[in-house]
């Protein structure tokens, strides 16, 4: 447990000091938010209707773009092999690194996103449901991204491949994330519960898949 805590701390410190963490992801998020109204047109009513969808998709893309950071560097400098030989199982290592990715990238983004929605004229009454749905969903996003990152660990230009592999898995999160924020207020609770269920299921299953893929590369 202390080893895993140390690993978590190390990953968070690395993310904070190396750059490419929450700050860069937030910058990307802002850049997309600036471009979209230019592409769609500045009409306030249209933007208000599209705002939750735009925020969700920007969140998915930001998480995906930072996904290869989860394992790649540690694989390249060999520290992943050391972690694989350490007492905690590789599944727990993968889980810890996914949690570190969530805490350093997805969670800050999902907290900031609803407030950045103000730029898109987001209706104020959906800010809270959107924030809750994003915080719940973002953990699943990081966990699924860790599967994609481990599957494409040593593939040159693996970034595009990650998107093909992981985006299909993101569809349910997007569907229920959207139904929590658009649609009628009765749908908010069931959608949040299903999002929580998806997150819990990927909490259990994603580390197993990720560790299996890591073993294939470490052989």
């Amino acid at each position: 447990m202390t080893l895993l805590a140390a690993l978590l701390r190390r990953d968070l410190i690395l993310a904070a000091r190396q750059g490419g963490g929450a700050g860069t992801a937030l910058g990307f998020f802002l850049a997309v938010l600036v471009l979209l109204p230019i592409g769609i047109g500045p009409d306030q009513a249209t933007l208000q209707r599209l705002a939750p969808g735009i925020l969700w998709i920007t969140l998915l893309l930001s998480v995906l773009l930072s996904a290869d950071r989860i394992f790649q560097q540690d694989f390249e400098d060999g520290s992943l092999e050391v972690m694989a030989m350490a007492p905690p199982s590789l599944e727990l290592v993968a889980l810890t690194k996914a949690v570190a990715h969530w805490l350093s990238t997805s969670l800050p983004l999902s907290i900031a996103a609803p407030f950045l929605g103000i730029l898109l004229n987001l209706r104020t009454e959906v800010i809270w449901p959107l924030a809750l749905a994003m915080i719940l969903g973002s953990f699943a996003l990081s966990l699924l991204a860790s599967i994609g990152a481990s599957l494409t660990l040593n593939i040159r230009r693996g970034g595009l491949l990650i998107s093909i592999l992981v985006l299909p898995l993101y569809v349910p999160i997007l569907v229920f994330g959207m139904s929590a924020t658009t649609g009628n207020p009765e749908m908010i609770n069931p959608s949040l519960l299903i999002l929580a269920a998806i997150t819990l299921a990927s909490f259990v299953l994603a580390p197993i898949a990720a560790a299996a893929a890591l073993r294939a590369y470490l052989k």
Partner: peptide
Amino acid sequence: RAAMIARIVALVGFIN
């Protein structure tokens, strides 16, 4: 290695 990775991809996608 491709075989090992492909197995995981197929099994993860089966959820669909």
